[in-house]
Amino acid sequence: MFKGSIVALITPMDEKGQICRTSLKKLINYHVVNKTQAIVSVGTTGESATLSQEEHIHVVMLTLELSDERIPIIAGTGANATTEAISLTKRFEKSGISGCLTVTPYYNRPTQEGLYQHFKAISEHTELPQILYNVPSRTGCDLLPETVARLSQLKNIIGIKEATGDLSRINKIKELVQNDFLLISGDDATALDFMQLGGQGVISVTANIAAKEMRKMCSYALKGDFISARSVNKRLMLLHEALFIEPNPIPIKWLAKKIGLIKHDTLRLPMTPILDSTCFKLEKAIQYANLKTL
């Protein structure tokens, strides 16, 4: 369940900014039909930064309910306060959640020892599998390979979503961890290269609107058929890149609405509506990828 194409699911909202159950159900059904390996609920792409903790829990539990055990659900449970991350993680114990994705504490800029103690404390308070999440461009801190190796020794820390885009990280981490420690890309544009170097999958933004294509690309890569995987990925590359012209999830929400997966592309401040110039580039990318509207 933690390999292949895993979608970093958007959180659909109505025109008033409230969670849209109808669109969320449609999104989940789309991923079930297209055999996405798992859903990450309320990660960065799911706008965890602008949801209250009550809303955060509600969206994860609603995603669980609507998935009806048809696809594994991974909950985003990171926070920049260790006690808050522990509280959020414990809330999902025995809920049916398959695991947690826990981002490094943002803004605080902790030392490597601080990062180790943070994740160790979370690990000690739960039986749920934990996937570390390293995305320095957003958090202001970098979880280094040596610290990942220390954390990999803890009982329920099973892998890392590595979103630096630095492919040299893969070998550095692989040299320091056991073979069963999962390496998952957090960067769509380099995900295939990441997998060819030994990664097991990607937690993908692109998969929100190209679920079938991302699943096929990952499936080929896991089988070692990188010629077929690159053929699929070539069509998606403009899309991988265009989705980050503006901060995620502004572009992906606009595209999800355009192809009919959600009713509204509502965002919460400080996220603002997409620029016309970005829409033009996204339309070119989606045409090149040959994705169909629903």
Rank of each mutant, 00 (worst) to 15 (best):
I73E: 09
G140C: 09
L66M: 10
A189V: 04
G78I: 00
Q37D: 12
F194K: 04
L261C: 07
L9C: 06
L238H: 15
C20D: 15
G114D: 08
H56L: 05
H118M: 06
N108C: 14
F194V: 02
N248P: 00
K35Y: 00
L154E: 03
A163S: 13
G99L: 06
S41P: 02
G76C: 07
I252D: 06
T89P: 05
I19C: 08
G199D: 01
K253C: 11
S52G: 05
K174Q: 14
I170P: 03
G140S: 13
E65R: 14
A289S: 15
L197H: 05
N248S: 08
Y107H: 10
L267Q: 08
L236K: 02
Q178W: 10
V232W: 00
P105T: 08
N134T: 09
Y106S: 15
A8M: 09
I73S: 09
G46T: 02
C100I: 13
T77D: 04
K223H: 13
G4S: 02
D142L: 00
P145V: 08
K172P: 09
K223M: 10
L24I: 09
N108K: 15
P145M: 04
I73M: 12
P249D: 08
V32Y: 00
Y288Q: 13
I71Y: 01
G17T: 07
L239G: 03
G165H: 07
K120L: 15
V7Y: 04
I227E: 13
N179H: 14
G159V: 05
L24K: 06
C141N: 03
I10N: 02
P72V: 09
N156S: 04
E93R: 12
R150Y: 10
N233M: 03
L291M: 05
R215E: 06
V177W: 10
Y106T: 10
M271Y: 11
T102L: 10
K94P: 10
T293S: 14
G78P: 05
T77E: 02
L267R: 07
V7K: 07
G114A: 07
P110A: 02
T63F: 04
Y30L: 09
I250F: 06
E54V: 14
D265A: 11
Y133Q: 05
F92S: 04
G201S: 00
P105W: 09
E246L: 00
R91D: 15
F119E: 01
Q117M: 11
V42C: 03
T63H: 03
A8D: 09
D188G: 05
E84Q: 14
N248A: 06
L238R: 14
P12Q: 02
I250N: 01
H31P: 08
L132T: 04
N208R: 01
L66Q: 10
H118E: 07
Y107P: 11
P270D: 09
I6Y: 04
G76M: 08
N290C: 14
D166E: 11
T83S: 14
G76W: 05
L236D: 00
G76S: 07
N248L: 04
E65K: 11
M195R: 02
I245S: 11
K223W: 00
L255V: 10
S231L: 09
C141K: 02
V148E: 01
A285D: 01
L222I: 01
T206M: 00
T139M: 10
L154Y: 06
G96W: 03
D14S: 01
L115M: 13
D265G: 01
D14M: 03
E246C: 01
L269P: 13
L294F: 13
G165I: 06
I173Y: 08
V205K: 04
